[in-house]
Simulated assay, not measured.
Amino acid sequence: MFTIYVLWPIVQSITLSFYDWNGLYNKDGQFTGTFVGMGNYAELVSDPAFETSLWNNLKWLVLYMAALPLGLFIAIFLNQTVTGIRLYKSLFFFPFVISQVVVGLIFAWFYAPNFGLFYLLTQSITGQGTAILADPDLVTYGIIAAGLWPQIAYVMILYLTGLNNVAPDQIEAARLDGAKGLKMLWYVVLPQLRPATFIAVIVTVIGALRSFDLVSIMTNGGPFGSSRVLSYYMFEMALGEYGFRMGYGAAIAVVLFAIMMVFITGFIWKMWRDETER
């Protein structure tokens, strides 16, 4: 199943990236693509829309990592036995269970000019409202903030699960040795949260690099293509308004896959090295 639905499509996408193909077969069912070798990749190098999409993805990747410390500290706050803690957990968990489409719509209304809450707040503070989704310099950061809302909730859940498995005897021993606060967190708690951290990093990297739905719902890549990311540009080139350039879309997909594998492989290697040194 993994070979059919994961490995084989990856191989097909890489192969397709060397062709110029409109996605159609002839009447005999034969492939009509033209082999262009590295032509699609050479075109990417000089494509300003691809450059914008790549830089936006890097912004997503860097800023999305804020979900890890924020999710960890919320999880530590919620890992208590006090009255009403289940209600608080439910409130923090809520963003994760709603659809990304709903998240996009909520934040689109939040940022909306004239009546959006964020617009009205900035207007009351500075005298002039800020329409984030209409500003080419700010739009990507506004969408990233929308994506962080459910992502922090997801990371929080992972760390809450990990905190339930922290050995209480190690905590007590550390307290007897005088460890507390950040020292307790850094030397005692975080080493036991490595499995949760590993999963959190993987899902956060993947979430940052496949940020298609929020861009599609909130801006459609605008204004003037300034909020495009690689996954959305791939869709535009392969199936969207730019025509059925399947080979070019596949080349964008291969670049996105390569970036994802670099980060994930690097983190897996670091985790493996740390485990072998212990």
Score class of each variant (00 low, 15 high):
residue 62 V to Q: 12
residue 99 S to N: 10
residue 41 Y to S: 02
residue 134 A to L: 14
residue 123 Q to C: 02
residue 58 L to A: 08
residue 90 S to T: 08
residue 132 I to G: 00
residue 72 L to C: 01
residue 75 A to N: 07
residue 71 G to F: 03
residue 96 F to Y: 14
residue 127 G to A: 05
residue 58 L to C: 08
residue 103 V to Q: 02
residue 33 G to F: 06
residue 19 Y to Q: 02
residue 66 A to Y: 04
residue 48 P to Y: 03
residue 21 W to G: 00
residue 105 L to S: 06
residue 108 A to R: 15
residue 71 G to A: 10
residue 91 L to W: 11
residue 55 W to E: 09
residue 97 V to K: 09
residue 31 F to D: 06
residue 29 G to H: 13
residue 16 L to Q: 07
residue 25 Y to F: 15
residue 60 W to A: 01
residue 61 L to M: 15
residue 66 A to D: 02
residue 133 L to Q: 05
residue 22 N to D: 15
residue 79 N to V: 03
residue 55 W to C: 03
residue 25 Y to I: 04
residue 131 A to R: 05
residue 18 F to S: 06
residue 118 F to A: 05
residue 126 T to C: 03
residue 94 F to L: 15
residue 102 V to N: 08
residue 57 N to G: 01
residue 18 F to V: 06
residue 38 M to Y: 12
residue 116 G to L: 02
residue 55 W to N: 08
residue 74 I to V: 15
residue 50 F to G: 01
residue 51 E to R: 14
residue 63 L to A: 06
residue 113 P to N: 07
residue 98 I to P: 05
residue 115 F to T: 12
residue 29 G to Y: 09
residue 40 N to G: 05
residue 25 Y to G: 02
residue 80 Q to D: 10
residue 39 G to I: 00
residue 36 V to M: 10
residue 80 Q to L: 11
residue 27 K to G: 08
residue 49 A to M: 12
residue 113 P to K: 04
residue 93 F to D: 08
residue 129 G to W: 10
residue 36 V to H: 07
residue 131 A to E: 11
residue 60 W to N: 09
residue 49 A to K: 11
residue 32 T to F: 11
